[in-house]
Design a binder for these strands. Structure first.
Lengths: 337, 337
DNA sequence: TTGTAAGCGTTATCAC
DNA sequence: GTGATAACGCTTACAA
């Protein structure tokens, strides 16, 4: 392993000069810089970043903590963040918590102990607030929250316009002529899901439809199925689901009750998972924009700016909610943006 | 930030004693150890792993390099590896190369410079051999290759039984009565894909079917579509595809030619992506066992053992290849395991 | 523009 | 069993 001292010795200068030359300090003669660079290349030098980090008290690693990397949403957020961070000279360390709080705390500790430059996080389900985050990470490492955020924590936040998105999805169902629109709502200690719930509720009101009921508070396929059955038996003719997998469960529930989709039962999911466009009938879904969220989160970290950034969602209308009788009488509504 | 010196000062001992006590050295009195541990807890001490790593010349980070984390296969490998590595006290750093060689080299460099304890890698498409890997990583960091491996590199390898898997998939198609079975083959400088190709070829021979043709050498949806059209126009009635996305393209090609699946055209993909079981008709697929591959790769790293580990594949028979006329006359074959 | 020297926090090697 | 001391490789005041 060749060090700056080796290069210094070979050139008859001191390690400090070599260090300066290699880190682009202006306080070094152009001639020396060239000599150093050439010698470094020749000897196959590579900076020991561990030593460098120890000395500087921080690294060029940015940690990203997500519940599960295999979810399309999160892997795309990571991709978006990477695209920005790598260009800025950072490297990215990815941790998954599998939705477990202890894993999240452990990841935060690990990142702190590795003196990361910053942390981008979408927290695991199961916490009511972000106290554990501050405790585990400390307060001097920049923190950016995305998607699932705690408003009470300091630092930047990147969120979707969940209210408006769910509103648009529900309104779309109403416009297709569905009249009893329930919801599969997701985890209620998450502000993102709470906002979707409110969007759904507001849309029903604005469309002059009866109040709907909440049939689930998790977004996995199994509960989607159970909740779907309940909704159908209670007389629902459509569901807005805060997740795609629970929506899928509901589709299966409708089938098992002999209902045709979209004729008898309409459904819109959320997240635009790959399978939604591949299944038959294809499933409408409220698309998040994860790549852009990742980019925004990375930008927020780089700029060190606090505050909330909102990334718009986009409704993908597909077969599961398209009855093609779009001219239904829905009261006009000023809230839709 | 509290250091071992702080603890030492508070207890009237030296930093060396504290270090020994905290790292479980036997050369320290039980009493002192307890006192140190208590004081450490009290003062909220946490080891500075950067300093520790510098001193020890290595870290407890294991790097995992994959082409793309959003592929089901890779995210599950990562999950499997994590489950083993975290239990063993390592933390995991994930890098994605987006199939780009330069990104792979950069990742290897980054990992080496961070003095990782080891690297698990599935290399990007586009290299003929693993020279760049050795050059970038050096030879003293343990390397474990999985799925896409270079035989000529030293170190442990974890692979699927690609030959046998493709053989079984092709034979299954033959048993369903398909007679002109082509293949969408994948990248030929990858040993995994080459083995699948051979398995397909051998199965055709053993089943007494005419030699088939290779219609694609990439596994993306678009080329699957193009290649599917060609295969159909050339008289194929079935395809074994080395990837699920190309198989999906072929399904779309068959549809666009007005063929019914599986009646007129049969297809089996590879990888068992989530969508295969959700699409209509559901798609048969040769499942890899990524979680287990990840576990095996991690084990190989921990044990420091070289050699090749084989993880079996499993054929998932679904609608796209099920004509339910399973009694076709196929010569019995000793090769099938 | 370059050299000197100290130190980041930890661990390993001595000696006692 | 504990203490003193050096060293891991790099960066950065400060001095020259």
């Amino acid at each position: 392993m060749v060090t700056i001292s080796d290069i210094a010795a070979a050139l008859g200068v001191t390690p400090s000069t070599v260090s300066r030359a290699l880190s682009g300090s202006p306080r070094v003669k152009e001639e020396t810089r060239l000599a150093v660079e050439q010698m470094a290349a020749e000897m196959g030098y590579e900076r020991n970043v561990v030593a460098s980090n120890l000395r500087k008290g921080k690294s060029d690693i940015v940690g990203i903590i997500v519940p599960r990397i295999h979810r399309n949403f999160f892997s795309n957020v990571i991709g978006g963040a990477e695209s920005i961070l790598e260009a800025a000279g950072y490297c990215v360390l990815i941790c998954q918590t599998h939705e477990r709080l202890e894993a999240e705390v452990k990841a935060l500790r690990t990142l702190r102990n590795n003196q990361v430059a910053g942390v981008l996080i979408s927290h695991a389900i199961g916490a009511r607030d972000g106290k554990h985050i501050l405790e585990a990470l400390g307060s001097h490492i920049p923190l950016v929250q995305f998607d699932r955020v705690f408003s009470d924590l300091p630092g930047a936040k990147v969120v979707s316009n969940n209210f408006e998105g769910a509103y648009a999805a529900t309104r779309h169902l109403a416009e297709q002529g569905y009249r009893h629109i329930g919801t599969l709502a997701g985890y209620m200690n998450s502000e993102a899901y709470a906002a979707r719930l409110e969007g759904w509720r507001q849309a029903l009101r604005d469309c002059g439809l009866p109040e709907g009921e909440v049939y689930a508070d998790t977004i996995v396929r199994e509960t989607g199925f159970e909740a779907g059955l309940k909704a159908i038996d209670a007389g629902c003719d459509a569901l807005y689901s805060a997740g795609d997998f629970s929506a899928l469960g509901a589709v299966e529930a409708a089938r098992s009750r002999g209902l045709r989709i979209p004729e008898d039962f309409g459904i819109v999911g959320t997240a635009n998972e790959t399978f939604t466009s591949l299944m038959t009938p294809s499933m409408s879904s409220l698309a998040l924009n994860p790549f852009e969220m990742g980019r925004q989160a990375a930008q927020a970290f780089l700029e060190g700016a606090d505050g909330v950034r909102v990334v718009p969602m986009e409704l993908k209308v597909r077969a599961s909610s398209s009855r093609n009788n779009s001219e239904n009488q829905i009261p006009n509504n000023p809230c839709l943006k």
